[in-house]
């Protein structure tokens, strides 16, 4: 039988099944926590750090990623304090600077309220979110790609740089990759690091409801798991 626990999320009491993550619980109840590396039904590795929340223990708030945090009876979570918003915006900014050429990243940045990017652009092709790696390993049991190397050299690769014999050529890795989503033609070019604000309606909605889910179009862009 499913056991339930009660958690306090931004003052509201939520009843959620034991064993779910705080992120899943929040999304289930319509609390918006932007996230990138989380894919429903896969394990979480906390790579993108976007889903941070404040976890209050004994009156002290600890910032942790909600996708790797399991619900516990009576836990207190704050998902949208000023501090969290500031940190999240900064993380989104760094993501944009790392890999601006993806609609997914641009939309996440917009959802997190990024207006300008203060960091130099690196134009990387991979943000090491690990979505492809986990989908390959857990959903298709192929383990044909994985993280290789360490530190700056860390990258996703197939064994010895050759196509693995276990690869089923299902292309799911490409489907879940945020970098395969064609970037918006407008903003976020090197040299003009700003949001063009053409999606005015979106941005207004975002500003008016930073913490609630209204099934934003942006979420669709970055494969938010509510869609």
């Amino acid at each position: 039988m499913l056991q339930y626990v009660t958690i306090n999320m931004d003052g509201a009491l939520l009843r959620v099944a034991k064993g779910t993550s705080v992120l899943d619980a929040a999304l289930e109840y319509g609390v918006c926590i932007p996230h990138l590396c989380h894919v429903p039904n896969l394990s979480d590795m906390g790579a993108c750090r976007l889903c941070i929340v404040e976890h209050v223990v004994n009156g002290k708030a600890k910032v942790t990623t909600s996708c790797t945090l399991r619900v516990q009876e009576g836990m207190v979570i704050k998902s949208n304090t000023d501090k969290i918003q500031r940190l999240r915006r900064n993380i989104a900014e760094l993501l944009v600077a790392e890999a601006p050429n993806s609609r997914a990243i641009q939309d996440i940045a917009a959802r997190c309220g990024v207006k300008t990017v203060r960091y130099p652009f690196r134009n990387e092709k991979c943000v090491l979110c690990g979505r492809c790696v986990r989908v390959c390993k857990e959903m298709f049991a192929a383990n044909a790609i994985g993280f290789v190397g360490r530190g700056k050299e860390r990258r996703v690769a197939s064994p010895f740089g050759k196509l693995s014999e276990f690869c089923k050529r299902c292309n799911t890795c490409l489907e879940v990759c945020p970098m395969t989503i064609t970037p918006c033609a407008g903003p976020m070019k090197p040299g003009e690091e700003y949001l063009c604000n053409k999606c005015e309606s979106q941005l207004m909605e975002i500003a008016s409801a930073p913490d609630q889910c209204f099934f934003c179009d942006l979420g669709e862009g970055f494969q938010c798991s509510r869609h």
Partner: peptide, 21 residues
């Protein structure tokens, strides 16, 4: 690495990951 993978019964990718780390 391939021989080790086969001998130990782990996937080649796993050996490559460890060796490159």
């Amino acid at each position: 690495m391939r021989a080790v993978a086969e001998g130990l019964g782990v996937q080649p990718l796993e050996v490559y990951r460890v060796a490159s780390f």
